[in-house]
Amino acid sequence: MSRIAETFAALKRLGRGGFIPFITAGDPDIATTELLLIELAAAGADIIELGVPFSDPVADGETIQRASERALRKGVTLRDVLTCVARAKQHIDVPIVLFSYFNPLLRFGEDRLANKAKEAGVDAVLVTDLIPEEAQTWIEILVQRDLEPIFLVAPTTSDQRLKEIARQARGFIYAVSRAGVTGTRDEMTGDAEALVKRVRSVSDLPVAVGFGISTAEQIRQVWHFAEAAVTGSAIVREIEKLAGSADLVDRIGEFARSLLAPKTNDSPQQGTLPSRAQH
């Protein structure tokens, strides 16, 4: 069983929803990213999505675009990102999903990337602009190395394609909550829940919901109908705000904890959250 499958199995046993934070590698710098991975794991992340910075992130809103720009200004490369994962993985065993656009991977070399990613301890790869129709070779390359290809589904995805994507996907299915780019939204629409229902009818894989999930309340809402919630821009925005402060890592840890178990929230979820330190 893969680490991701184990994680979802454990969540199911514990009867709680999963928390998947996203950060951009190299923001504010690659050394801090390593510490952030460790801190997010300690704060209760079940899986971490690590964004590979790209010059032209068309699926991302302004927050993550700016994070990418900051990382690229620091000269962060895919090689740096993999080194960072390898170092962090000496301290944590939370599954890591590499989240990238296709061109940097293509330039690095698909085979070489898969080898290096596996060595570094990456568990899965999600390529934002690679749909299964264009990904046949890529999927084979990943699967041969026990890396899991994660695919997105969107409210606009037809039932027929949903079935096809479910057939190709491993690990979990990432459901995009609504039309649009990444970024925080005040409220969730019913689109996400309807989409997850459609996924259920064609797949047994766990479903994570992302795009626009930025508050503890929204995460709880997602847990009512999906296995996990992804929070990206809200965390990246905190990192941006804290740029330069000495306690950035601790405060991002606090922020992640507040998303998971808000102090004012007396929902039963809170009591069932195990401390990650015991794992």
Binding site: A59, D129, E133, P155, T156, T157, S158
Partner: peptide, 22 residues
């Protein structure tokens, strides 16, 4: 039929755009 001239072309887009492109 998927817009490939040899290895070139195709459709490298976020999932959300597949439906409108189709």
């Amino acid at each position: 039929e998927h817009g490939h001239w040899g290895r070139f072309g195709g459709r490298y887009v976020p999932e959300i755009l597949v439906a409108p492109l189709e």
